[in-house]
């Protein structure tokens, strides 16, 4: 998922803080009663750090995710599509902002988090390291990537940490809108000319497997699942969510008249859903490590924007210094 790197970062959280006065026990009891944990409440340091990492990875994914789709804004093939795409990319920026704010309630600043992203220390979802080569990729991203994001994020609306759960409620509404728009774009291509159908099929071919990888490593290789489940930061395992996605998405591909690029895809009669063939995990780990098709380009673009904007941010700070913080220039009209 957007936070898939958590499960394979290999940094097992230090366990077993001494629980002298029973705080840990009371904390866990609150979670078990489905109470929300709020910023001012006491929380174990591991809980705080896990949440910071998860929310930050999610936020970074939203911000880096603006790039592959932004790549087609100037080339959208109709004015309606252009407006929809600009609004979508803007929504993703907005998601990044709410998530950075949610992370700030845990005592880490947006500036620090952004520095971690730019230095390459922080992770973001592997999916955004794939290129958008044709217009159909914009449809495929909305349909598959936003679709996969929803699968993971709906349960996060019930996450134990209040500010994160509330941010997710708002974000999920917009993601499901994006998913529908993406599918509608694919449908227009699938019902279009032979060249448009070929474009749609090619996009599905390239985005299918990376979308399945968004859910993170298989449960057998996932490090943090058990603790995160106990804390209700996570409610379903990676494989459960991945299967849910496959079950919903394969029939959607069939409705489009497109072929899922998996020769081993088969109907499981007993389970009443489709099962996918084996995932190429070495590709997943390579992309996560920085060796995907666009890792360098994505980080370079973020760094360039940050560097090119430095003088602007400095000017705003200098102006605020001279005229009082929060000063708004008094222009006419």
């Amino acid at each position: 998922m957007y936070t898939q790197a958590l499960d394979s970062a290999g940094s097992a959280a230090p366990q077993g803080e001494a629980d002298e006065d029973g705080r840990l026990e009371r904390f866990q009891a609150r979670i078990d009663r489905d109470e929300k944990i709020e910023p001012k409440d006491w929380m174990p340091e591991d809980y705080r750090q896990t949440l910071i990492r998860q929310i930050a990875q999610h936020a970074h994914s939203e911000i880096v995710g603006m790039l592959p789709e932004g790549n087609w804004i100037t080339r959208a093939p109709s004015l309606r599509r252009k407006v929809v795409l600009i609004a979508k990319v803007q929504d993703e920026g907005g998601h990044g902002m709410y998530l950075y704010s949610a992370a700030e309630t845990l005592g880490v600043s947006r500036t620090t988090l952004i520095e971690q992203l730019l230095s390459g220390r922080a992770k973001y979802s592997s999916i955004f390291n794939y290129p958008t080569l044709t217009w159909a990729d914009i449809g495929a991203i909305g349909w598959l990537v936003d679709g996969a994001a929803i699968m993971n994020q709906i349960p996060l609306c019930r996450c134990s940490y209040g500010p994160y759960a509330r941010a997710m409620v708002r974000i999920c509404k917009e993601e499901s809108f994006h998913q529908r728009q993406g599918y509608e774009l694919m449908l227009a291509l699938a019902r279009g000319s032979a060249a448009q159908r070929a474009m749609a099929q090619d996009a599905l071919n390239r985005w299918w497997w990376p979308s399945l990888m968004m859910f993170g490593p298989s449960d057998a290789h996932s490090v943090h699942t058990a603790q995160s489940m106990r804390w209700k930061i996570k409610r379903f395992s990676n494989d459960e969510l991945r299967q849910k996605f496959i079950s919903v998405t394969v029939p959607q591909a069939q409705y489009l008249g497109l072929t899922v690029p998996d020769p081993e895809l088969r109907w499981d009669e007993a389970a009443q859903h489709y099962r996918a063939g084996p995932i190429n995990w070495s590709e997943f780990h390579a992309v996560l490590k920085g060796d995907g098709p666009c890792n360098r380009e994505r980080l370079a673009a973020r760094r360039e924007a940050h560097e090119a904007g430095r003088w602007v941010r400095e000017a705003a700070a200098a102006y605020a210094e001279k005229h009082g913080a929060g000063a708004v220039p008094a222009r006419s009209g």
Binding site: I73, T74, I86, V89, A301, A308, R313
Partner: peptide
Amino acid sequence: AEWLGHGPALEEDLALGNIAL
């Protein structure tokens, strides 16, 4: 719209995007 994703701060990306819209 060329600015989206490349502005000096997230707030500016969003504002320039709004104006483009």
